[in-house]
């Protein structure tokens, strides 16, 4: 197993060069300390109970030496760290700006062309990208190990990340600021695609998606969406209580809401809950749960919602 993750942005090799530099310094220092330690212990081991020892109290030369050398190394590491950090934080003019909204426990992305995606970030290769990020609730942190970038996302204020992807592929996005029960499920993917594919994705609205699902049964599509759209973070399929109600045996069940009203969970109820989860008058929050679900309006197409409903029907 490689000790460094895939390197997929212009910033990554720069960070890696610092990691290597400090690793080498560290390994050499550790070997030096370890060697001296063992050497002294062996060479000067106690031979009799009355060993004569010299009363050396200090040595100005040695002490200056091990003050100056670490100082120089520290300055060197600082400069490396600073120079690359400066590059990383300086935005490129004309960068492709994507708005990122974090909320418990999902990421949504809004692109300059008006498209929106959910837990899936699409970026073109070799183009500088700038993320403008904001949180709807508590602190989150946007982390892509393959790009070596990380930035906390805060409420009521924008924070930024700049990067230029250099490798096509799908990479992990993690939340790294603790944000509650589903913190470790607040995952997303970043898709780095070629210019041509990106243009296709931009213009193709959901046609591509429909094609990808061609020939699949709706409930199977729903099963994929369950994990790819982040439902899994809050809704279990094994009956366990999560942040939201479990989907097991959900369909056809009578639900009681926090305002005391009741309703049978049918197709329309589920669709309304996905589009208007908490906002009155449509929103109905099940008793015993907090009103925290985000709206999926604009993030899921009608056919996708239908697929999810079909999937829920199969969970018994």
């Amino acid at each position: 197993m490689d000790w460094l993750p895939t390197s997929a942005s212009t910033f990554a090799p720069q960070v890696d060069s610092i990691l290597w530099l400090v690793t080498i310094i560290s390994v050499v220092s550790c070997i030096l300390v370890g060697f001296l330690l063992i050497y002294f212990v062996v060479k000067y081991r106690r031979r009799s109970d009355n060993d004569q020892t010299p009363a050396i109290t200090h040595d100005s030369f040695l002490e200056t030496l091990w003050t100056v050398i670490p100082t120089i190394l520290c300055i060197l590491i600082f400069i490396y760290g600073y120079v690359y950090y400066d590059k990383y934080t300086t935005p490129t003019k004309g960068a492709y700006e994507i708005n990122v909204t974090a909320q418990r426990w999902s990421w949504s992305f809004a692109y300059p062309n008006g498209k929106k995606t959910f837990n899936e970030l699409y970026v073109p290769i070799n183009k500088p990208v700038r993320l403008v990020m904001q949180s709807k609730d508590v602190l989150h942190s946007f982390f892509v190990p393959a790009f070596r970038v990380k930035q906390d996302v805060i409420g009521n204020r924008y924070t930024f990340i700049n990067f230029t992807p250099t490798k096509e592929g799908v990479f992990d996005i993690y939340c790294t600021e603790y944000c509650g029960i589903s913190h470790s499920d607040m995952l997303a993917k970043v898709h780095v695609v070629s210019d041509i594919e990106y243009a296709k994705w931009e213009s193709g609205d959901s046609a591509d998606v429909e094609n990808a699902y061609a020939g699949m049964a709706p409930d199977k599509i729903g099963e994929q969406l369950y994990s790819s759209k982040g439902c899994v973070a809050c809704h279990s399929i094994d009956g366990a209580n999560g942040v939201g109600p479990s989907w097991k045996n959900l369909f056809g069940l009578e639900r009681e809401f926090i305002d005391g009203t009741k309703e049978i969970a049918d197709e329309n109820y589920i669709k309304t809950s996905i589009l208007y989860p908490v906002n009155p008058p449509q929103g109905k929050v099940v008793k015993g749960y907090a009103p925290v679900m985000p709206s999926y309006q604009g993030l899921l197409s009608d056919s996708e919602i239908t697929a999810i409903i079909e999937y829920i029907k199969t969970i018994k």
Binding site: F11, V15, I18, Y84
Partner: peptide, 8 residues
């Protein structure tokens, strides 16, 4: 302590 490395 090195800024760029800490980001990662």
């Amino acid at each position: 302590g090195a800024l760029a490395a800490d980001v990662h």
